[in-house]
Design a protein around this nucleic acid. Structure first.
Length: 927
RNA sequence: GCCCUGGUGGUGGAAUUGGUAGACACGCAGGACUUAAAAUCCUGUGGCUAGUAAUAGCUGUGCGGGUUCAAGUCCCGCCCGGGGUACCA
């Protein structure tokens, strides 16, 4: 009657989804009587293509944890929202003129429908959308906070309101201030500060603000009227359109993330994240400890400052290299070299960074004619210009030690410069392969001779400090983050200008909403699209015309979920104090150096300013793997309309064409469906093998254009959401990337049906008894509960699905239909397959939702384990283990051990070569 | 180049701190039910060798060594795949 058939599944799933929504069972609020648990998914960008089966993978995992934690007694915050500002909607707007908000709203609707039918336990009342003015009001507010803040390095380092800085400037100027600020900030007195006009005043503060404007090098494409990121530039021209791109300096909004470099680095040790992501962030921050050192320019009073981490190799310096953009280039170039230098600098200037990168192997450079003096040994060495030295890192100048640096070595070889060995080892022929810059002892190095390299560094550093020729210095590779985009579909800045001075819009006038415009592309004069908005100003003052980058809205959204409708604060103190931080964050590792770094940055800044008390936003993170598509190919014989089967394609000249995977079953193409698929295939002919057309297969990214997208809706339609959820978990470890194959889904579906059948007789009538369970049945139950619990705790969901299957198989063979066994199992299954669990729960006579129950306990060890390993020691050393039943008395064990063959042999002084013990019995002893 | 990962049957993948390798599932083979098919259920399933058989022996976790009573797991040296990063001094 009520078989677990596909119709029944549909009925059950609809019934419960409706009921859950009606009863608002997933609604959460602050409840101080319970411990909190915050399980967060990276919110998606709602693209037009909708969800494919890869998207829900991480959501399913976090949903299982959320549901599990709820029945474990936690108050669980499990929200979902949309990162709804983004390029695709804007691109679509440029092409069609349709407002991006319309596209976005439509896409969000699709996403929500798809998400809801998989039955995630999100509290939808807490949904946020970054493009919603009620949300970006607070993104703008945070921007204002960061604009009005600076980084005080004193007492460990802290973000402080800018007013504290102003007060100090008025009192003493900036001589006592230790701040993270612009490198070229002059020292000024209080009087000088007071003498500043408004413009100078603001310009000076800009050097300190966390959100600030500065001249930055950008890739400017005049034809497109926009700034391009490095990956949008190919070979000096724009990727789209092929227009010329030049490197120019431009006024840009930036974020002083560099101020937090050390904290961002140290914080990594306190959070439970996947090692690769931490490593990526470490590399990105790129800390290097070394010193800056002055080399006097021969014949002048000036000097060039270099940065090095290998001061120990100072006696190996045979030349110096400075970047083409170095400020002293002009000054030190001799008349004889001028023409050549100017030519080189000119070429270098117009090469994009990408170009420089792609030409890494090409060695180029030019001699300036100038010499500098090595402060350690007073040797005179020549100064060269080369573009392998970057202006933006360190001091833009390096002391070249060709004997211990591969780049310096290649340069020296190319231009025939001398090489002096300073470390023991191969002398004449240093190649890439035998470079060992971190081994051996110092030679040819004056007072450092004989020391290992690391001790030599210490000794040399000491001398640098004592003699005042340089200073200890820590450098970071990380740059401040550019914060402005010449785009429409992003958060407007809460900034207006009076006489060119940026001011923050008054709090009561937030949000600054996006104005309507009639064209979404940049203006003819190259201004951002917002310049098209007529009469868009703040009390007569012009607004900032760029918008915030994609990462602005996502850098604080976990706070907003805590209190999503608050109009007074971005989240109330009460909520922040209760929910604190994210306990589990699931998402892709591709955000390692973007979103995840920026979020940590904003979290720290906000904490310093008194909002929130967590130093780190995401305590634990898991990266789910990507689900790839399995593309299918047909092979068209070139110039014909004939298609040849995969196995025979080598006999012809063919072109592989993607075939829609829905027309392919088990690699066999449905020829009729293919003919109907597209008009130009209507009259195709096929060369078959064994009467079938076999397709080729390749694993690729899931994408519409590859016709390999599997939609979760199809799976839900065919098997139900419970099967989809369990199957996605069953596929393999969460972190692993794997191609989507529907091969095993029947196995999961069969499991659910068998589980259902445990509760029903052969006629489909509910038939659960209240009989006392046997010991065997209890063993099955307890063992399963324990394993499921352990599996969820270590996020190993694929093994927990297997555990359920084993349990079910065992109960089937025990013919167990007892309430005492089945009821706890229903609860344990509910995080994975909530619909079937809820339905059975109701049939078992419970009126409240399963969420109000609690997770079953296993406490009887004898029911869980049947045996244990007993170590056998001889002369104090463990020699083997024997396996005994858990409830065997200790004395019996001792007796058995002493009597055992293995111990006897040992006592006779003849240790056996091999002992095989199975189930407490010695099976084989090889002597 | 550097950093991080991973490599186990025909396939996806299991395997606590070193302790019966291949759980679970797919696929495949055989059987039951059926006029037949589908569905369902049962049995078998790493490889090799011997045996009518139950079974026994050998071998086996990318390759080569090592530690250990015992290695997929630990150590050393390689090979291959995936991801990240790239003149950062």
């Amino acid at each position: 009657m009520a078989d677990y058939s596909k119709d029944e599944i549909k009925r059950i799933e609809q019934k419960w989804q409706d009921k859950w929504v009606a009863d608002k069972v997933y609604k959460v609020s602050v409840d101080t009587s319970k411990p909190k648990y915050y399980a967060l998914d990276m919110f998606p960008y709602p693209s037009g293509a909708g969800l494919h089966v890869g998207h829900p993978l991480g959501y399913i995992a976090s949903d299982i944890v959320s549901r599990y934690k709820r029945i474990k007694g936690f108050n669980v915050l499990h929200p979902m929202g949309f990162d709804s500002f983004g390029l695709p909607a804007e691109q679509y707007a440029i092409q069609t003129g349709q407002h991006p908000a319309i596209t976005t709203a439509k896409n969000i609707e699709t996403y929500k429908r798809q998400l809801k039918q998989i039955a995630f336990s999100f509290d939808w009342d807490r949904e946020v959308q970054t493009s919603d003015p009620a949300y970006y009001k607070w993104t703008q507010w945070i921007f204002g906070q960061l604009f009005n803040a600076w980084y005080n390095k004193k007492s460990g380092g802290k973000t402080e309101p800018i007013q504290a800085l102003i007060t100090e400037l008025e009192k003493n100027g900036n001589k006592n201030i230790e701040a993270v600020c612009d490198d070229e900030t002059p020292v000024i007195s209080a009087d000088q500060w007071k003498a500043f006009n408004d413009q100078e005043n603001e310009n000076f503060l800009q050097k300190y603000r966390i959100a600030y404007r500065s001249e930055t090098m950008v890739n400017w494409c005049a034809a497109l009227g926009t700034v391009l990121s490095n990956d949008e530039v190919k070979d000096g021209v724009s990727e789209r359109g092929g227009y010329p791109v030049e490197r120019i300096k431009m006024m840009q909004w930036s974020m002083r993330i560099t101020a937090y470099a050390e904290r961002l680095l140290k914080g990594l040790d306190t959070i439970d994240w996947p090692e690769p992501v931490k490593e990526m962030q470490r590399n990105w921050i790129g800390k290097s400890v070394g010193c800056e050192l002055d080399f006097k320019i021969d014949g002048t009073g000036e000097s060039i400052r270099v940065f090095t981490t290998r001061i120990d190799t100072i006696y190996g310096v045979t030349f110096m290299v400075i970047a083409p953009e170095h400020e002293l280039v002009d000054k030190i170039t001799t008349a004889a070299q001028r023409a050549e230098v100017e030519k080189y600098v000119d070429i270098a200037k117009n090469r994009s960074e990408r170009e420089r990168m792609s030409e890494v192997k090409r060695i180029s450079g030019v001699f300036t004619g100038a010499y500098v003096i090595n402060p350690f040994n007073n040797e005179k060495v020549p100064v060269w210009i080369a573009d392998y030295v970057l202006a933006g890192y360190g001091t833009g100048a390096v002391m070249a030690v060709p004997s211990s640096d591969t780049r310096d070595y290649a340069f020296a070889k190319h231009f025939n410069l001398p090489i002096i060995d300073v470390l023991e080892g191969p002398t004449s022929d240093i190649t890439k392969d035998n470079f060992e810059p971190k081994s051996g002892k110092m030679i040819n190095s004056g007072f450092l001779n004989g020391l290992p390299w690391n001790e030599a560094i210490e000794k040399a550093l000491k001398k640098v400090e004592e003699s005042g020729i340089g200073v200890l210095k820590v450098n970071y590779r990380m740059r401040d983050a550019i914060f402005g985009r010449q785009r429409y579909w992003g958060e407007p800045f809460p900034v207006y200008y009076t006489n060119g001075i940026p001011k923050i819009v008054d709090f009561n006038d937030l949000p600054v909403t996006l104005p309507e415009i009639n064209e979404y592309k940049p203006t003819e004069t190259g201004e951002p699209p917002l310049a098209r908005a007529n009469g868009w100003n703040y009390k007569g003052h012009p607004y900032e015309l760029t918008t915030m980058p994609g990462w602005a809205g996502s850098s604080w959204y976990w706070f907003r979920y805590m209190d999503p409708t608050n109009e007074k604060e971005f989240a109330s103190k009460e909520d922040i104090n209760y929910w604190q931080d994210v306990d589990l964050y699931i998402g892709g590792s591709e955000h390692a150096t973007g979103h995840l770094l920026y979020s940590r940055f904003w979290c720290k800044a906000l904490k310093d300013l008194g909002y929130g008390n967590a130093e780190e936003p995401f305590k634990k993170m898991i990266n789910q793997g990507h689900i790839q598509g399995m593309s299918k190919f047909v092979y068209r014989i070139n110039g014909t309309n004939k298609f040849v089967s995969h196995g025979l394609r080598k006999q012809y000249e063919t072109t592989a064409i993607h075939a829609d995977i829905h027309m392919v079953d088990n690699d066999v193409l449905d020829v009729e469906a293919f003919k109907k698929w597209r008009d130009d295939f209507r009259d195709s002919e096929f060369i078959l093998e064994n009467g079938k057309y076999i397709c080729g297969t390749e694993v690729e990214k899931m994408s519409k254009s590859k016709y390999n997208v599997v939609n979760p809706d199809e799976i839900v339609e065919a098997y139900g959401a419970d099967t989809l959820r369990m199957y996605e978990m069953f596929l393999g470890p969460l972190e692993l990337s794997k191609p989507w194959a529907t091969n095993g889904i029947d196995g999961v579906y069969k499991f659910l049906r068998r589980f259902w059948n445990l509760f029903h007789d052969s006629n489909g009538n509910f038939a659960v008894t209240s009989d006392e369970p046997t010991r065997d049945e209890q063993k099955v139950l307890h063992k399963t509960i324990k394993k499921i619990e352990e599996d969820i705790d270590r996020f190993s969901f694929n093994t927990s699905v297997s555990e359920f299957m084993i349990c079910c198989n065992e109960l089937v063979s025990l013919k167990c239909n007892k309430r005492a066994i089945l009821e706890p199992l229903v609860i344990a299954l509910s995080p994975f397959a909530p619909h079937i669990a809820e339905e059975l729960w109701e049939k078992l006579g419970h009126r409240e939702t399963i969420l109000k129950s609690s997770f079953p306990k296993y406490d009887n060890q004898y029911l869980i384990e049947s045996s244990f390993n007993y170590p056998i020691s001889i002369n104090g050393k463990v020699r083997a283990q024997m396996n005994f039943a858990l409830d065997m008395p200790k004395e019996d064990i001792e007796k058995m051990v002493m009597a055992s063959e293995i111990v006897q042999k040992w006592l006779e002084g003849k240790p056996p070569k091999k002992v095989i013990i199975v189930q407490g019995k010695i099976v084989n002893v090889v002597i």
